[in-house]
C-alpha cells in the first residue's frame, strides 16, 4: 500500500495534492471520469483545508482490498473547526468567499465520506473512491 502525506500551506500545495491524487488514481486503474471526480473532490477539500483550516495535510492512500482498488484521501487541520457540520454540508452555505459547494460537492463525488470536527481543535475529512 502506498501512502503519501502532502502538506497544505499555500495555493501551490493544492496543485500538489491534485497531482498526487491523480498518480494514485491512475495506479488504481480508474477511468478518466472517475479520475476527474476524485481529483476534483480532493481539490475542493484541499482548498477548504487551506482557506478555512489555516493549512494542514492531505494523506493520499492507494487501497487494495482483495480484488478491489481505491483511493482514499484524508484532510486534517488544526483550525477553528466546524460548529454545524449539517449546515456546512448544505450547498450554498459558506462563511468565506467561496461558492459553498466544497463539502457537499466533494461528498457527491466520492463513494465514502466521513467528517469529524471539534470547535477550536480542527477538522478531519476522509473521502474514498473505489474503482
Amino acid at each position: 500500500m502506498s501512502v503519501t502525506v502532502v502538506p497544505i500551506t499555500t495555493g501551490d500545495d493544492v496543485v500538489r495534492v491534485r497531482q498526487e491524487v491523480r498518480t494514485q488514481a491512475v495506479a488504481a486503474g480508474f477511468s478518466l471520469v472517475d479520475q476527474t471526480k476524485i481529483i476534483t473532490a480532493a481539490s475542493e477539500l484541499a482548498r477548504n483545508t487551506l482557506d478555512y483550516g489555516g493549512g494542514g495535510t492531505a494523506t493520499v492512500e492507494l487501497l487494495r482490498q482483495s480484488a478491489r482498488r481505491g483511493v482514499r484521501i484524508t484532510f486534517e487541520d488544526q483550525g477553528p473547526g466546524i460548529p454545524s457540520i449539517d449546515q456546512a454540508l448544505a450547498d450554498g452555505f459558506t462563511t468565506g468567499k467561496g461558492m459553498g459547494l466544497g463539502l457537499g460537492g466533494a461528498k457527491r463525488l466520492s463513494n465514502e465520506f466521513a467528517i469529524s470536527s471539534e470547535v477550536g481543535r480542527g477538522t478531519r475529512v476522509t473521502i474514498t473512491r473505489w474503482k
Binding site: 476527474t36 476534483t40 450547498d91 463525488l109
Partner: peptide, 14 residues
C-alpha cells in the same frame, strides 16, 4: 471543456 470535466462539474453542483 473535456467530457469528464463536464460530468464532474454537474455532479459537483457547479
Amino acid at each position: 471543456m473535456r467530457p469528464a470535466v463536464a460530468i464532474t462539474l454537474v455532479e459537483l453542483g457547479l
